[in-house]
Amino acid sequence: MPEIDAFLGLSFCLYFFDNKQHKLPHLHVKYGSYELIIAIETGESLEGYLPNKQRKRAESHIAEHKPQLMLMWQKAVQGENPGKLDDMGDVC
C-alpha cells in the first residue's frame, strides 16, 4: 500500500484494487497504532479509529485535496501507482 502523503504525523495511504470492500473512494489514514478509513468525497469515517484531533486534521487535509485524491484513487483501483500527493500539483 503506497503512502501518498504524510502530514503532522498522519500517513495517508491508498491500496491498489481497493474498491471491493468499501466501494467508495477512500483513504487509509494511519497515526501510530491507529488506522481510520475515510471516504474521499464525503469525509465519512468508514471503519477504524483515530483520536479526535488527528481525525479532524485528516478530514480537513482530505477535503483540501479532494480533486487530486480522486484522480489518485482512480489510478490506484486500476492497479496503477498513484504517486505522491505533492507530485499531483493543483488539479482544480
Rank of each mutant, 00 (worst) to 15 (best):
M1W: 03
P2E: 11
P2T: 11
P2Q: 09
E3Y: 10
I4L: 13
I4D: 02
A6Y: 06
A6L: 04
A6N: 01
F7G: 00
F7S: 02
F7T: 00
L8V: 01
L8A: 09
G9Y: 08
G9R: 05
L10D: 01
S11R: 10
C13R: 11
C13K: 12
L14C: 02
Y15T: 00
F17L: 12
D18K: 03
K20D: 10
K20W: 02
K20H: 07
K20L: 11
Q21D: 08
H22G: 02
K23L: 08
K23C: 05
L24I: 11
L24V: 14
P25M: 10
L27Q: 00
H28G: 04
H28I: 09
H28C: 08
V29K: 00
V29Y: 03
K30W: 11
K30E: 06
Y31Q: 02
G32A: 09
G32I: 01
G32Q: 12
G32T: 00
E35N: 08
E35H: 10
E35D: 09
E35R: 13
L36S: 01
L36G: 00
I37F: 07
A39Q: 09
A39T: 03
I40R: 02
I40C: 05
I40T: 02
E41P: 02
E41G: 10
E41W: 14
E41D: 15
T42K: 08
T42N: 05
G43Y: 08
E44I: 14
G48K: 06
G48Y: 11
Y49V: 03
L50E: 00
P51H: 04
N52P: 01
N52G: 07
K53G: 06
R55M: 15
K56Y: 11
A58S: 05
A58L: 13
A58N: 03
S60T: 13
H61N: 04
H61A: 12
I62H: 03
I62G: 07
A63C: 10
E64Q: 09
K66G: 08
P67M: 12
P67C: 12
L69P: 05
M70E: 09
L71V: 08
M72L: 09
W73R: 01
W73V: 09
Q74L: 14
K75P: 02
K75N: 07
K75T: 04
K75V: 10
A76P: 00
A76T: 01
V77A: 05
V77Q: 06
Q78D: 13
G79H: 09
E80A: 15
E80F: 15
P82V: 14
G83T: 04
G83W: 14
K84A: 15
D86G: 06
D87V: 12
M88L: 15
M88V: 12
G89L: 10
D90I: 15
D90R: 12
V91C: 12
V91P: 00
V91M: 13
C92G: 03
C92D: 04
C92F: 10
